[in-house]
Design a protein around this nucleic acid. Structure first.
Lengths: 149, 149
DNA sequence: TTACTTTGGTTGCAACATGCTACCAGAACG
DNA sequence: CGTTCTGGTAGCATGTTGCAACCAAAGTAA
């Protein structure tokens, strides 16, 4: 099971996020959900994960409000796992990980799956970090306000 | 140690990214590095992680080209861990996780650390996913081209 | 309606990773 | 110099993962 958030870190949103999805499989399950997987077996075949592990991960994601269990869309009496709004809000996280991976783990000519804009069939624009008034920022232009207790 | 990438997933950039940083501590170490932590002891106190765990995580991150070991900036003979360019490219991932956490794990009035724009002291703009030609996209506007082998 | 397959699990066990505590060497510090 | 600080190792208990075997309910074809 995923670890509990540590006390001295609980006021950092990154820590709470990592607590919810910070293990190997959870993020890949969410990625697959964005790619259209809905059924237990789809996730299992796509990921190659052991079934007991998948069972517990799906349960954690459902308990965490990231996936929802709904009746199967094909009319059978099985059920399916779909992203909740909270789960869909992970989209920028997945895109960020995808772009980082594309940039650093593949040779320029190496084939890899890629995310495209449906309308034009083009790859997405790189993510940009901007200030409230629209300036492009890099890490050095930012700071973290630590909460004092 | 972090798990090896599975064969049936190795062509997905998300999988390779998760393989590199997809465990509890690695991402929090990177976050701390963005926040200015450089020394072993700083990371340890900030995270509350056992020293042997921190040792192996730092080694994995250095081996993965995300952190670099450099001589200490204070002239002592100790050394420090700093983000490489590859590590700095994780900035959007951290920001995405931070924004997701802020939006879903805190009450509106609950205090938490926040990332601000140094120049104006304002929180950052929310990340936006855009097509190559600049249209705002949501998950349903995108698709993933799977590589066929 | 009966036999077979698919789906979505559960269970038990072995191996591995994690975390705690104690210890330790070299550098800094007074 | 003697003490403290820093950055680790080592050993051991516990927790988590992964594999393989098993299983029941639902679907399917005759």
């Amino acid at each position: 099971m995923v670890r509990r958030t540590r006390f001295n870190d609980s006021d950092c949103p990154v820590a709470r996020s990592v607590d919810a999805i910070g293990d190997w499989w959870s993020l890949l399950i969410v990625r697959d959900a964005f790619d259209g997987s809905r059924r237990f077996g789809e996730f299992q075949r796509s990921l190659g994960v052991a079934k007991n592990i998948l069972t517990t991960r799906l349960r954690v994601l459902v308990a965490g409000g990231i996936l929802d269990v709904v009746p199967a869309s094909d009319g059978s009496s099985y059920h399916e796992y779909v992203l909740t709004p909270k789960g869909k809000d992970l989209f920028p996280v997945i895109v960020a990980l995808r772009q980082w991976g594309e940039g650093h783990f593949f040779e320029p000519d190496e084939p890899h799956s890629e995310m495209i804009d449906r309308r034009r069939g083009q790859p997405l624009r790189m993510l940009e970090i901007r200030s409230a008034d629209g300036r492009l920022l890099d890490p050095d232009d930012t700071a973290v306000n630590k909460v004092t207790r």
